[in-house]
Design a protein around this nucleic acid. Sequence first.
DNA 1: CGGAAGCCTTGTAA
DNA 2: ATTACAAGGCTTC
Length: 318
Amino acid sequence: MKMNNWYKLICNKYDLQLVGTLNGGQSFRWKKYMEDDNEQWIGVFNKRVWILQQHENEILYKVFESNERKNIYKENEDFNKVYNDMLIDYFQLQLNLGEHYKQWSASDPIFAKAAKQFYGIRILKQDVTENIFSFICSSNNNISRITSMVNKIADFYGEKICEIDGQTYYSFPDVDVLSHDDVEAKLRENGFGYRAKYINESAKLIMNQGGQTWLESLKKMEYVDAKASLMTLMGIGAKVADCICLMSLGHLGALPVDTHVYQIAMKFYMPHLSKKKTVTNKIYNEIGDHFRELYGPLAGWAHTILFCADLKKFQEET
DNA sequence: CGGAAGCCTTGTAA
DNA sequence: ATTACAAGGCTTC
């Protein structure tokens, strides 16, 4: 195995907290492990494998990419800059998070309390395709199985990037690969259950509307229109659509209401909901609107911090 | 039309 | 060994 360099990105840990951001249920492709007494994260985005280390004032990292991909670079490429820019984009570091934390804390004491421990939580700007199919897998499912399903999709249909310590890493495939007729059967054989059909059908629906071009167009739409468009796909309801809007389309006001968020809303913010049986569409929107009014246009980002605080209490292991 | 309930796969914890 | 249920969605009534 080649000895890749360590690169450096200047970034305070209060501006980006890796554990909360990478382990908070946004992406299912990051894994934490120990290396020489350092906590390291390994994961895939942008068709590259990344190893990240959090330090007080910087992120140290390595990048691995396939040999074919290396041809895209110039003779004297400044890799540290190229890769830094990718990380800045992925973690949305151009956004001044501290200012927003201040504002959200001022409008909500419950947030202020959660923010003390859950500082530096960022919304990742994820690949739309990976995000869509990951969250189709997430419905009525648990994190460990979702993780294994997402990794299976990459293993089966993605392109090999590299091998590290005997483990082969693959990129997440493009939509057209998932639209082929044999995909549903293959996924079903591999324990995807009824979601195998959702994945294959949604991939076909996306391709019929223009594939990647259509996906990109969702970013330019208004939030409500992008959400409605996503909900025409199979296996995507309001909650999953909001996850996608928030995590890969740049619609930061999108606020996914899952069972946890519903519990939080009921308990601390909207007690009148406690007599309700189910989360109807009306209640769903009511909760979203409540938080959008409370936190403003980046409400989805703010809510993610509350979500992390709640998730944390039954996720101590790993 | 809005709301409630049953069903859908699989793995795992109790 | 059985049962409940987990980051929901779809269909039916």
